[in-house]
């Protein structure tokens, strides 16, 4: 098991006080939703945002998974909030791993949150 002691202060802060937890009605035209993960494995995340003039003006997530999954979802949604949708492509797994000082074994949590975010962005393009 990854020792809980090995998590960085910034990760613990995001886990203890996650930002942007919530739910938007998927039926709303301006809500873009992306999901990732596997329900059977108990690790999954949903990211949703609303757009105003190309800018992500509202964003939220719900996640089930380890501390890292929750903290990454909180950090990523905070990071991208109020930024143009096009900035999503600039968020790399490496950047997130570095910012949250995540152990390599938790990279899958980062990839899952990024995947959900990218799927939400894709749903915007296809709409």
């Amino acid at each position: 098991m990854i020792s809980l002691k090995s998590y960085s202060a910034v990760l613990v802060q995001h886990f203890n006080n996650p930002q942007n937890v919530g739910h938007f009605n998927e039926q709303d035209q301006n809500v873009y939703t992306g999901r990732s993960g596997c329900i059977e494995s108990g690790d999954c995340v949903r990211v949703q945002f609303k757009i105003d003039d190309g800018i992500i003006n509202e964003i939220c997530f719900k996640a089930q998974g380890s501390c890292a999954t929750i903290a990454v979802a909180s950090w990523v949604t905070s990071k991208i909030h109020h930024f143009p949708v096009s900035e999503i492509g600039n968020l790399s797994a490496e950047l997130i791993m570095t910012e949250l000082q995540l152990p390599a074994a938790k990279k899958h949590c980062v990839l899952m949150v990024l995947d959900a975010l990218q799927k939400a962005a894709l749903s915007l393009k296809s709409s």
Binding site: M1, I2, L4, Y7, V12, F15, G42, D43, Q64, G65, S66, C67, T69, I70
Partner: peptide, 10 residues
Amino acid sequence: DYVDGEALLM
């Protein structure tokens, strides 16, 4: 149910 073990410990 509906929580992760590690997150629960934390």
